[in-house]
């Protein structure tokens, strides 16, 4: 690991702006709700009761919550895409698309340092590292797939114009059944992502001591003094 300096030798860097933090937690919450309700839609639990059907509506309510969360999730996602163009350098869209050689180099470095643990080379990034960014790029794609398939399915259940804008996706995917199947399978990608994501945040907090966990609440990271200048110099040459 990198040689650490003491706490008072850290400087604070404002990394995540308020909109990014809001986005993050709204996203997390809506995905949690979507996974729980989505799972119930796919596999409804057997709640037996002897009342007439007209007195119950729990499954309808579960679906309703899913759809409300879906709208929040979708527009939050669209908002984040917008912020990728107007936000600070840590939020910029070009973090997420590895079109520079240096980004791919860092992907390899991070793999070696953090995942395989065969190297101790320091990683320069202060915001997302390149591997994390690449992963988020794929999660954005997954958001897109989930939104397209979700609203595509929703088009058949809604009179509103908005979901109808997505109806074209269903025939392309081979009908409602396949669309539903893809939508269901992608839920598992979200769950697996969440497990790894949360673990890696804890891991980085533990190992790097830059306060990643709280950075998504307060916005600040604690970076070793001099690191920012060093990185700036490197970028210049």
């Amino acid at each position: 690991m990198k040689e650490k300096k003491e706490a008072e030798h850290n400087e604070t860097v404002y990394v995540w702006q308020l909109p990014v933090r809001f986005y993050h937690w709204i996203n997390a919450l809506s995905i949690l709700v979507l996974c729980v309700t989505g799972f119930l839609i796919g596999y409804p639990i057997a709640l037996q009761n002897s009342a007439e059907a007209s007195f119950g509506y729990w499954f309808g309510t579960v679906r309703f919550i899913h759809f409300v969360a879906a709208f929040i999730f979708f527009f939050n996602f669209v908002y984040r895409l917008y912020w990728g163009f107007v936000g600070n350098k840590y939020a910029k869209w070009d973090n997420f698309i590895p079109y520079r050689k240096s980004q791919w180099q860092e992907v390899l470095d991070v793999l070696k340092v953090d995942i395989l643990m065969v190297s101790k080379k320091p990683i320069d990034s202060v915001g997302h590292n390149a591997l994390a960014s690449l992963t988020y790029f794929f999660t954005f794609l997954a958001f897109l797939v989930q939104s397209l398939t979700g609203f595509g399915l929703y088009a058949a259940m809604s009179k509103s114009f908005f979901p109808k804008l997505f109806a074209w996706i269903v025939p392309i995917l081979g009908g409602d059944f396949n669309t539903r199947m893809i939508h269901h399978i992608f839920m598992w990608l979200f769950i697996v992502f969440a497990i790894i994501h949360i673990y890696l945040v804890f891991y980085h907090d533990y190992v790097e001591r830059r306060g990643v966990t709280s950075s998504m609440i307060g916005g600040w990271k604690f970076i070793e003094k001099g690191h920012m200048e060093e990185v700036k110099k490197k970028v210049k040459v």
């Binding site: 409804p44 057997a46 709640l47 009761n49 009342a51 059907a53 007209s54 007195f55 119950g56 509506y57 729990w58 499954f59 309808g60 579960v62």
Partner: peptide
């Protein structure tokens, strides 16, 4: 359909 909405399913 009312059974569906009420979550009453054949198991």
């Amino acid at each position: 359909r009312p059974n569906y909405d009420a979550g009453l399913f054949v198991e």
